[in-house]
Design a protein around this nucleic acid. Structure first.
Lengths: 347, 347
DNA sequence: TTGTATGCGTTATCAC
DNA sequence: GTGATAACGCATACAA
């Protein structure tokens, strides 16, 4: 089967390749009659320009890259949703790369994106590895970069995050207000800025309420659900005075549910639980989980919008474009004696 | 900043562009000394071949496309995970497109993939629209196509699905065995083969147990969660004899939970619920949800493997490559008087 | 073992 | 208005 390209169209229409190209691009210097003839045949043959040829010529890929730790995760899948919507509105394509929290993988992916494959990149970085030179060199190569949610603080580029410090402070205070005195903090990373901010909010809220920070109550997990559940169970056995869990990621809140169930502890009577989460059915859990919910879709959307601004202006994204969105504290049964359906906007 | 391309390398090394190209591609006719020199500089300058140039020249994009209705969905995000793993193993890139169940969008996306952007496509089709000529023409253009989960039965190409008929039969029988006599079927689509198979399993299981099929008990939903919940509530009010729900998608099982809660009905005492679902925390719901769980990751993985076989052999995927994986019935509290943690493999 | 020349499909520049 | 031609960056057939 003969390929459908400009040459083919030109031959069948007795026109030059150049004219056909210009007609399809609706250039002003082509007569309407010719444009019509060209378009008719093009649509008849289902002509579609070869993106590799026009990309090479124009030095544009019309593609952005998205680098995330995971996709099987409510937060990231919603963010990708938002990103895809913006990309589509701009007629851009979306390449997706999963790092699975593997720094080496992030490095490899970054290399692949260095030479024209994409016009810009959205990244949520892995939680191990503080070196970001690979990302900086991407930027030096002229590929604009926007962080979302998980950022390298010291790198000068745009980012979209949430008010993690405030949220953590508020979450911790919420547990304290509801009577908790010994609150464990479940977290995946203390290195990442996001981890630090969430940790600091936790610590400051404790201090403000006259409670000493106890390092033993901080659990750094990094593995699979089964192991994390075991770790949490071990902590509960070691420290039976624990009466609250603050989970900085959704999966750890779920692990604490499992751990409590395994040990015969009742939530919220024995232990209260609050967690960062984008779980849409948090209210159907037993008990319904009190959450701090990030505006995941909006985060993806805004990050993509900032990226496209950089792409259009043909310059690197700057730290001046940093955007902080607000998370929402949604109070449910896991932190109170009664099941409240109150939804309090954070300010 | 000067671009890092073959020309640049060639100039700095006093070699021809061709030699540099061959050295980097490790061709046998280049001396080891030259290869070493070239590689050293390439790695020093972080040279990465321009994919648009080599793609154009080799007529290979090293990219596959994934077209799915959604990503914020446990099944699809797990499948994408599996796809990405296989693509990565083959050094391919993954373009992702979300159709949001919009047939027009599927059409538009298909057009974009027609001319060299991808070497193959994995599709889970939208549930409205029975015409698949757009996909067939993709295939005619030489782009191999593999369906996963949601297929067009009449189209001759490879597909990876699950034993939907059996699973539905088994799910319905499970409800019957546990005492249900009036089972509503919640479904999103009767047009798609997957919808038909699931419906048929439901009908046949009823028949085999001497229960008449009642069309009124079949709910076709298509909108958002709030509306679906309303629809289910309305049905429950109209037919108070309903004592079981069989949801053919996860979200509808959740809607039935909401509906029951809103009406003050208790699961599983008043109504039992079973649903297709890849929710990892089904066991933490109140009550824990009995599920038919598809091997989502494996589905993505196998579909991608089949696609790569076609790409390597440079020919269309055939129906002979159809693969059917088995779903698993996981019995939990929502279908029984007691909370069983039995997990029974289907055979 | 290396260099020269050509072409992948498209778009931009220059003629006419 | 339209046609020839060059160039984007790379890989390969053919020369040397």
């Amino acid at each position: 089967m003969k390929p459908v390209n400009l040459k083919r169209l030109a031959e069948e229409l007795n026109l030059s390749v150049a004219t056909v190209s210009r007609a399809l691009n609706d250039r002003y210097d082509i007569s309407q009659a010719t444009k019509d003839r060209v378009r008719e045949l093009a649509s008849k043959l289902n002509y579609e320009p070869n993106p590799y040829a026009s990309g090479l010529r124009r030095q544009k890929s019309k593609t952005i890259g998205v680098v995330v730790p995971e996709v099987a995760n409510h937060f990231f899948s919603l963010a990708i949703n938002g990103i895809e919507a913006v990309a589509r509105a701009n007629n851009y394509h979306v390449l997706i790369y999963l790092t699975h929290e593997d720094y080496e993988r992030e490095l490899a992916v970054t290399r692949l994106l260095a030479n024209g494959r994409v016009e810009g990149v959205l990244v949520s970085v892995v939680n191990n590895g503080e070196d970001f030179s690979h990302l900086a060199s991407l930027q030096e190569r002229g590929v604009p970069l926007v962080f979302f949610d998980r950022v390298h603080e010291k790198m000068t580029t745009a980012s979209v995050t949430t008010n993690d410090y405030e949220s953590s402070y508020q979450a911790t205070r919420h547990l304290l207000d509801n009577g908790c005195r010994c609150i464990a903090h479940l977290t995946v990373s203390e290195r990442l800025s996001i981890g630090k901010r969430r940790m600091q909010g936790y610590i400051d809220a404790l201090k403000a309420n006259g409670i000493a920070y106890d390092e033993e109550l901080v659990v750094h997990t990094q593995s699979n659900k089964e192991q994390d559940t075991q770790t949490i169970q071990a902590l509960l056995l070691k420290r039976p005075d624990i009466d609250g869990f603050f989970a900085s990621v959704e999966s750890l809140a779920m692990c604490s549910y499992e751990a409590c169930r395994n040990l015969g502890l009742t939530i919220p009577d024995d232990v209260k639980v609050i967690g960062f989460s984008n779980l849409d059915i948090a209210s159907l859990l037993e008990p319904p989980l009190t959450t701090i919910t990030q505006p995941a879709y909006a985060i993806g959307q805004e990050a993509a919008k900032i990226l496209f601004k950089s792409i259009i202006k043909n310059m690197a994204a700057t730290s001046a474009q940093n955007l902080e969105l607000k998370s929402e504290l949604i109070i449910r049964g896991s932190t109170g004696p009664t099941v409240k359906q109150v939804s309090a906007k954070m300010h």
